[in-house]
Design a protein around this nucleic acid. Structure first.
Lengths: 120, 120
DNA sequence: CCTCAATATATCGCTTCGCTATACATAATA
DNA sequence: TATTATGTATAGCGAAGCGATATATTGAGG
């Protein structure tokens, strides 16, 4: 049972993750949930109360576009990324990589105080 | 003039950064501010309204410990990391590296849709 | 047939936290 | 003398992740 990351870590990258998943090919919410969970080795699980408001925000911002599919009994809302969404994704991904490198460097430069060898 | 990272990126790693800076050697708030700014190439600038409440939270959680220095005209509150703080730092740093790798992988696996070559 | 789990979306309200604005005080510099 | 840098603090705003809850359909097992 994989331990989930603490919520605050997700802030600032959830948009990015959802955008990148939808950028691959159109998806509906539940699928996105599954895909992110799987792709992260069950480390990132988006509860419905996180996922759907997030999708609504992305759509309001015109980064994704939705269309209902009511052909089956289970109604599904399919999302596809927009041109604006792709640009944002590229920018955010870049930002994120920069930030990650920045934090890593900062950690490396200060956390060089070697603790007692961890209990192997 | 370095462009700052968007605020949401900082959530979940600010604690970590401050802890790691203080872990190096005892610091007071203003110094921490300067050190993080410098170490990040001015990409991470902690406003006072972010920094001080954060330090108070860390102290309440017993991750750092403070002592006033009123010997000079400028009163300074020196912080040092506790044993508990070091453990937390080690854990959080590990968590963070895992998370960063996880997001990178996820991005790589979905953002392989090559956009038109960026205007070089 | 009935129950329960999985599928599928939605919203309310709580909580946390980064930030702006504001406040106050001292030291150095122009 | 005025402005800037140093140094700490808090009130309140806004954004966002999440648990709880609601609703509806489908499929599997007993």
């Amino acid at each position: 049972m994989a331990e989930r990351f603490q919520s605050d870590l997700l802030r600032g990258s959830l948009d990015l993750m959802v955008l990148s998943v939808v950028a691959g090919e159109p998806q509906y919410g539940y699928l996105i949930q599954k895909n992110i969970s799987e792709a992260s080795g069950d480390k990132v699980k988006l509860p419905a109360g996180t996922l759907y408001p997030l999708l609504h925000r992305l759509e309001t911002s015109r980064l994704i576009r939705s269309k209902w599919d009511k052909s089956t009994g289970r109604r599904r809302k399919w999302y596809e990324i927009t041109a604006k969404g792709r640009k944002r994704l590229a920018n955010q991904a870049d930002q994120w990589h920069q930030y990650a490198r920045c934090v890593s460097q900062l950690l490396d430069s200060f956390v060089t105080t070697p603790l007692v060898k961890a209990t192997s």
